[in-house]
Design a binder for these strands. Structure first.
Lengths: 341, 341
DNA sequence: AATGAAATTGTGAGCGTTCACATGATATTA
DNA sequence: TAATATCATGTGAACGCTCACAATTTCATT
């Protein structure tokens, strides 16, 4: 059965006693095939376990039904979750997904990731570009006409992209603390080369100022628990006094809470903490973490749908899909003690 | 520059004033090209920004330089980390990677994942099959001659695979608790359809018995923090008394520790806890978690290297590469209080 | 200078499909 | 029943490349 030679269109045709073209019609669901021959051919395909040769196919159609996702920061929760959902959405729409992880956000790294595949005739690309480093125009010229959609790029730039409204998310988090009566609110931000980190930071500041509150100190973390731990220590060692803390993501919040406890601060009694992402573990933190939830499933799914539209109609005008996060309140935040005084 | 028509071998040939075959030789690093013509052709390739058409290439060579990884349980730390390293190793060796996530471990799901791609002429596959459900023989027939390597499959089966010696890992964890003087040791295992969960469970039991200790209760979790939380509650509600707890992974350990605290138990004073995986957050748990570290980078890298060998020489005899985990001791484990009495 | 071997370059065919068109079969209408 | 429209099926060419082999050039050797 497992002969060396691959089964081709012609083998199927011979067995079904039709021309190869008719077989081609059957596998492409052409309407111009009678019911009986269609059945006969289907049977032959099944008998021979025939699989159309995609290489031959895409050689003539110039379509590969292959998408590529280039992702930076794949060790982080957001990007890795997004990739999973991108793949699943792609497969639902009949595409397979090539994944490329880049480590440095340099033009060279991206060029490498894209160039290799342009020869593969990928039909489209999804670029998870959460940090600054490469301009949109550079990407356009790199992609060489292949449609692409960006994820996690800068908010409110007119590029084909799907993003989360980080400004809104950070506002939710900060306003939540304000509403609880907190007035001394510090921040541990993500690395400021990340768009999301800057947007959250800026919005934290703006929300406080809009409420007439002077922003507390802000220190920069690296998204990891250890980084959050170190950042919180830095904050406290610098003598910062605060009852509210907005942390750039849940992992850093975990580390920060540990550092706070080491300084004898109780959560939420002494300090209320808010994170970002709502990773599955957040509900089991000590205490369970109030956090800003992001829908990575929606990002992945919508970016693929957008991309597929772009493939079908490349002339479609570029726009940015904006998704809104939501606040999940748990036990790491509580009314300010001062308020009750 | 971005003309509609793609640049072909012939375009380059015309520009370099050589035959198309010579261009082919240059891009395939054939030695039979003089230095001067090679340069001339290289220049033309650069000028025209030529990219060889992979579809045409693989149509004739029957090689795609494409690998596929089929992964189950991609939302979990181990599989997702592994995939990242598989991709990076593959790219280093000149292959691109198609990723397919399957949700149910059924023959049908795997058949779907494999069949779609066999038409793509993938050169090889890596199957992350951490749970029972599909037999090796079935995979062999599904793969239809395409070489494949399994990851996380059953220990000591003679199949081409790369696995972690879970039995050894669990022994490390359990023996560590025994060495600390603990005699009442319970377990929260992973879902028992996972090979790793069964192996760790069996080895936990065996290690205790070898030390002349009657194993405590064992309850089954679902790898999530919430699952560990629930499992620990179940354990305690059933009246289990223990000073040592082996937990199937770090996330469940997080939840379990939370549940233990809710029952007034301090860690490590009252109960010592050991996890598995050493996720980056483990060092910032409350307290920092003692855990069994697994080298997912090595798994990914070695499985790709193995696969590439198999592609070059399909006759190579199948064997199982076994990697050994190591114990990382942190503050969630301490000498048994009883011992000192 | 003639010969041959080695290096370099060129030519024809085919990989397995789809596309555009040509042909054949069947149903519809006058 | 003959003519036409409609549907079903078949044929030749092309997609862009590599393979096997043929032709040409180069250069050392007799």
């Amino acid at each position: 059965m497992n002969t060396n030679k691959r089964v081709t269109l012609h083998d199927v045709a011979r067995r079904a006693k039709v021309s190869y073209q008719t077989v081609s019609r059957v596998i492409n669901d052409s309407p111009h095939v009678s019911k009986t021959t269609r059945q006969r051919v289907a049977q032959a395909i099944k008998d021979l376990n025939y699989q159309p040769n995609q290489a031959a196919r895409s050689l003539v159609t110039r379509r590969s039904h292959l998408l590529e996702v280039v992702t930076f920061g794949s060790h982080h929760y957001g990007p890795s979750q997004t990739v999973i959902h991108v793949e699943q959405a792609a497969r639902r729409l009949g595409y397979n997904l090539i994944v490329t992880h880049i480590v440095g956000m340099t033009l060279q790294a991206i060029r490498g990731a894209i160039d290799t595949l342009s020869g593969r005739l990928v039909d489209g690309m999804i670029l998870i570009m959460p940090v600054r480093g490469v301009e949109y125009e550079e990407l356009v010229s790199l992609c060489n006409g292949i449609p692409f959609v960006m994820i996690d790029s800068q908010l409110s730039s007119i590029t084909p992209s799907v993003v989360i409204h980080q400004t809104y998310g950070s506002q939710l988090a900060t306003q939540h603390l304000i509403d609880l009566g907190h007035r001394d609110i510090c921040e541990i931000s993500g690395p400021l080369e990340w768009f999301a980190a800057v947007e959250r930071h800026t919005s934290w500041q703006a929300t406080l100022e809009a409420a007439g509150i002077t922003p507390g100190k802000s220190v920069e973390g690296d998204w990891t628990a250890r980084g959050g731990y170190d950042a919180a220590h830095r904050l406290l060692n610098e003598g910062a006094v605060f009852s509210g803390l907005v942390v750039g993501n849940d992992q850093m919040a975990l580390g920060a809470m540990r550092a706070l406890r080491e300084h004898g601060l109780r959560i939420p009694d002494d300090v209320s903490v808010v994170g970002f992402d709502d990773i599955p573990e957040a509900e089991c933190f000590e205490p369970p973490l109030t956090t800003v939830q992001q829908d990575f499933d929606a990002i992945g799914t919508q970016s693929v749908e957008y991309l597929v539209n772009l493939i079908r109609d490349p002339a479609e005008t570029a726009y940015q899909r904006v998704l809104y996060p939501s606040l999940v309140v748990r036990q790491s935040t509580a009314p300010s003690a001062k308020r009750q005084v």
